[in-house]
Write a protein that binds this DNA or RNA. Structure first.
Lengths: 338, 338
DNA sequence: GCTGGCACTCGTGCGCGCTGAGTGCCAAGC
DNA sequence: GCTTGGCACTCAGCGCGCACGAGTGCCAGC
């Protein structure tokens, strides 16, 4: 186990390195933090920390920088979450309050998060899986063509075209619309398949084919759209990275374009609390020199989707975590209201 | 007026510079192109081209690089549009054919364009302004709450909540729905305001307030959504720029995040033909070292939106223009079919 | 166990000279 | 009059050597 002072040294190293972006040496450390010991002592502690793998030297005779393991310890034991100040909280609320629809909420959230953390922000659209159906609408566009519109309680709207095997009259359509809504309105997505299972039986033989087609399109929509969308922003902040950056920034931009990668990334994070993935803890190789801070958010108490930021491992963890948590909280509120 | 050969020299300079990314000198030019004259002659021509402002030297005793004006001349007079090969055309069609809805079409288009040109792709969603109404749907969510869903011929769906001044019965709602659709279905957006103007008069006094509210929300949607959305992709290609790049890439990423800037950019371009904006011709400062190649696309013969790519001024104009044109053509087809 | 001292390492910055691609100009040739 | 070969000149880039200094590990003494 590391002594109290060594932990303190680690904390000081992380803080200084995050601030200066330069390897930090023993002398500089004692000057900037009142550790109460001499540089020589700090050197010994540093040697110990290095043996344990918490810090490393880029080359002999340079200062130390934290390793992923070092950041891990820092985040777990040494750093709290820095709460937002009152004016910051007000600003967040003001900024989010003007949103008119779901797209707007997500868009504003991304911009806000990117601005607050000065990093790349990722916001997942509220998931359909955990949502409930508000309404299903069927529109006849042509005798054998129906448009299916699904409206969720999170304000999301999905539409699909259905080509019917046989012409489908307006009355049958109205009938189906009414029956469908009475069964699924207010219900969770997961429950829908069961609830509509026997619906074709209530119809005339000639209409059953069409009803089945419509229903299977509906179920498809539910499944397909579980494959969720997300929005990213603040990519310009990547330029603040190192000065080495073609190599650093490239794979990150590539990862950000692959929604699949990002969704997987968010998916792996814990559903409830805040998750911090540091450097190599990220499964995707391109993100091995970045950290991802994410948290679930949702209307009501329950998380329906996640949001977070992607930044260099050398980031201000307490501040970033504070911002992420605060934004998630307010977005949840906004969604609950609408 | 420049002599034939000088134009040829300019063309050679542009081609070589685009290929090598290095200033091109007189000797190298004569070696790589059979101009039929000696380096000394080329030097004289280069001096003339420089006097006219078509090329410049980064520093004394270096080769020449084209200026914005040089690229302009190249694009206008010297370069054609390089048509796609048959396999490329097939690949484009295959790639776009699998799309299931509008989002998917736009998403695929962006990825395709980014891949083909190896640059940043920008695709505007088909505009509502020039579209026609396919259907308007009204759903009663609560006694005094109506959801308005607007479906366009381009497959776009917009929804708005309407808080009614008074409770609104199902029969009135059905009535309004029917009247509304019979008037506006198939009509152009621009014509809608006139067409619904006198609609409240057809209703009982108690419902008129609500009808007016619904109608004004509809009109708002038409106007608001003229403010269009777009999708971008291929930002990772920015890393292929120069080696100087923090300075180059930063403002470009910032510009790409500002949808307003991009929309303005596309908006300035010609509605019909292909537009190429080179370097400083772009009004937005951050894009002064990039060129934008854009073109309108649409279902039917008519352009309803634009798409294009953003890349370094030093780009392969004929190839890029060919790819942009081909993609626009196929997207138009896809939209027309759906 | 902490501290000051000391020798050592090594990345960084600076100055220097060389090299070579490229230029402008000029006088001669077609 | 345009084209050409020749020639002197320029200058970015590269490699080299050197001094500087921040930082380290180790050790003897408190």
């Amino acid at each position: 186990m590391l002594s109290e002072r060594r932990l303190e040294v680690l904390r000081a190293i992380v803080q200084d390195y995050v601030g200066t972006e330069e390897p930090v040496g023993s002398k500089a450390l004692t000057e900037r933090h009142s550790l109460g010991v001499s540089p020589a002592t700090v050197r010994n502690d540093m040697a110990a920390l290095e043996d344990e793998g918490y810090i490393a030297q880029p080359h002999t005779s340079a200062g130390r920088i934290p390793t992923d393991k070092g950041y891990r310890l820092f985040v777990d034991k040494l750093a709290g979450v820095k709460p937002m100040t009152a004016p910051e909280r007000r600003a967040i609320q003001n900024f989010l309050d003007g949103a008119v629809d779901l797209d707007d909420v997500v868009g504003r959230t991304v911009r806000l998060l990117a601005q607050l953390t000065r990093q790349v922000a990722v916001v997942q659209y509220p998931s359909l899986t955990r949502s409930t159906v508000r309404h299903v609408e069927l529109l006849s566009l042509a005798p054998a063509r129906v448009m299916l519109v699904l409206i969720t309680d999170t304000g999301r709207v999905e539409q699909r075209m259905v080509d019917c095997p046989a012409p489908f009259g307006e009355t049958s359509l109205a009938d189906l619309r009414a029956r469908l809504n009475s069964r699924v309105a207010g219900r969770r997505f997961a429950d829908v398949p069961q609830l509509v299972q026997d619906l074709p039986e209530a119809f005339e033989a000639e209409d059953r084919g069409t009803v089945s087609t419509v229903l299977s399109t509906l179920l498809e929509t539910l499944v397909e759209e579980t494959e969720e969308r997300l929005m990213i922003g603040g990519t310009a902040n990547l330029t603040r990275f190192g000065h080495d950056f073609p190599l650093t920034i490239r794979p990150v931009l590539e990862a950000l374009e692959e929604q699949v990668v990002l969704l997987k990334l968010l998916g792996e994070a814990s559903d409830s609390g805040m998750t911090v993935r540091i450097g190599h803890e990220n499964a995707y190789e391109g993100l091995n020199s970045t950290s991802v801070v994410s948290v679930g958010y949702g209307s009501g108490g329950e998380a329906v989707a996640k949001l977070g930021v992607v930044g260099p491992t050398r980031m201000d963890y307490p501040g970033t975590m504070g911002a992420v948590r605060a934004v998630a909280r307010y977005v949840g509120q906004i969604l609950a209201e609408s």
